[in-house]
């Protein structure tokens, strides 16, 4: 199978280049990550992140034939050749397919990604109805792979000011939690021309999310709450 892969090692390369590979795959190689691991056994200089190999840890996000996705759950049969692999767009490249995700995590941290509840807890669990719990479905499953934020033009332009789809999805995960007591503070924090309102509903995030989540819808719900609060 043929691959065309972005290569860059700042110690050796003046600038990035692409390198073509033709790899003989085994019948058991099902996913793109299987092919990358096989490729690395031939050329161990190729660097990429990987861990769980089943789509839950979010390590191996990359740009695959022009679209962000996870290598470990991308079936090789669905890919046209040569398979063009690039690092996630918009973030500084450390080496090859490895990007510096500091800016992405900085935005995630900026939304206070933890439950705020200062009421002393009961001896047992806080009660939550199944309906209230259902509000968290489609939100808490995020794996922080950054496929969404790095496919978002608004995040490319303002990665320091716009929270981005991943961070906003998590902001809404806490806003929507019946146990959270900081909804107003959270809304105050997002009522900002950049932090929330740089989302122009381009919906690349929805298109690429490997977990099938919908950040645009969550952002819409935050906007609705801001409108409701204003009237």
């Amino acid at each position: 199978m043929k691959f065309r892969i972005y290569r860059y090692d700042p110690e050796k390369d003046a600038r990035p280049y692409t390198r073509d590979y033709d790899v003989e795959l085994a019948p058991t190689d099902r996913m793109l990550l299987d092919a990358l691991v096989r490729l690395k056994s031939v050329d161990e200089t190729l660097s990429f992140r990987r861990s769980c190999r089943e789509g839950v840890c979010g390590s191996d996000a990359m740009n695959i034939n022009g679209k962000n996705g996870l290598a470990c759950i991308t079936n090789l049969r669905e890919l046209r050749e040569p398979v063009v692999l690039k690092p996630l767009p918009g973030l500084p490249v450390i080496r090859d397919l490895v990007v510096d995700m500091s800016q992405f995590f900085k935005q995630y941290h900026s939304i206070k990604p933890y439950l705020v509840n200062e009421t002393p807890p009961p001896e047992k669990e806080r009660l939550q109805s199944p309906e209230d719990r259902e509000e968290l479905d489609g939100l808490y499953e995020c794996i922080l792979c950054a496929c969404c934020s790095t496919s978002c033009p608004s995040f490319w332009w303002n990665p320091d000011k716009f929270v981005g789809p991943a961070g906003l999805l998590q902001a809404y995960r806490f806003i929507a939690d019946s146990r959270d007591e900081a909804v107003n503070d959270r809304l105050d924090d997002l009522e900002d021309p950049y932090r929330l309102f740089r989302c122009y509903s381009i919906m690349n995030c929805v298109d690429v999310c490997p977990k099938g989540l919908n950040p645009t819808r969550a952002i819409g719900k935050i906007r609705d709450l801001l409108v409701k609060r204003a009237v």
Binding site: Y114, E125, S129, R133
Partner: peptide, 14 residues
């Protein structure tokens, strides 16, 4: 649960 872990719930909220 107090830290915010999203456990599934029974009809009585437990």
């Amino acid at each position: 649960e107090h830290f915010g872990m999203p456990f599934d719930r029974n009809p009585d909220g437990t």
